[in-house]
């Protein structure tokens, strides 16, 4: 079993734990603000998405267009001090880094990188451009990244946007194979990231 995506990993773990026996996918209709990740975060998609009814971590949510290995949108809303970005499934051998409320925005980018490298056990992860942005009036960071998971021949590309508001982390990341899928959906996702509010 090769873990290709971060949330896919959590998804497998969740299934092993057997909680979301009834987990499934629900349609997210286009054109209206949707509250995401059990937090004060909202987003307004301009096309239909599918939302997974299970949550990798408590305040998170997963959306996809064609399935998570082809496109995966991961929302984390209001991650508190000491929380991990993904489900800490290998806590003993390979614990994930913990969020700190004193992080600066460049630190959040590093936090995302270390969390992903540790979760996927990969060395091929690179952060691309890191730029200032706004999330519902709050200072935010938007960055791009690429990674490859060992044993999987498909390099992946991603974009993410994050802000720290009231000492809590709000982060949305998008990952897709760099072949075809990322380029096909990047502008749609960038538009979606522009609609984020907290």
């Amino acid at each position: 079993m090769i873990r290709k995506s971060i949330v896919g990993t959590a998804l497998i773990a969740a299934m092993l734990v057997a909680t979301p026996a009834l987990a499934g996918w629900k349609l997210v209709p286009a054109g209206q603000p949707v509250a995401v990740a059990k937090s004060g975060m909202t987003v307004t998609p301009d096309g239909d998405w599918n939302r997974w009814t299970a949550r990798p971590i408590k305040t998170s949510e997963v959306w996809t267009l064609d399935g998570t290995s082809l496109n995966e949108l991961y929302f984390v809303g209001g991650l508190a001090d000491g929380g991990t970005l993904f489900r800490d499934i290998a806590k003993k051998a390979r614990p994930l880094p913990k969020f700190s409320k004193t992080m600066l925005l460049p630190d959040v980018v590093e936090f995302f990188e270390t969390s992903t490298r540790t979760a996927l056990g990969t060395s091929l992860f690179e952060v691309g451009g890191v730029e200032p942005d706004k999330m519902g009036g709050h200072d935010a960071v938007r960055f791009s990244f690429t990674y490859t998971v060992e044993g999987d021949q498909l390099p992946r590309k991603g974009i993410a946007k994050a802000a720290i508001v009231g000492g809590q982390l709000y982060l949305v990341s998008f990952v897709a194979p760099s072949i075809h899928y990322f380029d096909r959906d990047a502008s749609r996702v960038n538009r979606l990231l522009d609609t984020l509010t907290i």
Partner: peptide, 10 residues
């Protein structure tokens, strides 16, 4: 630097 824009703001 690839994070020039972000660091400039900071």
């Amino acid at each position: 630097a690839s994070d020039r824009a972000m660091i400039t703001t900071l």
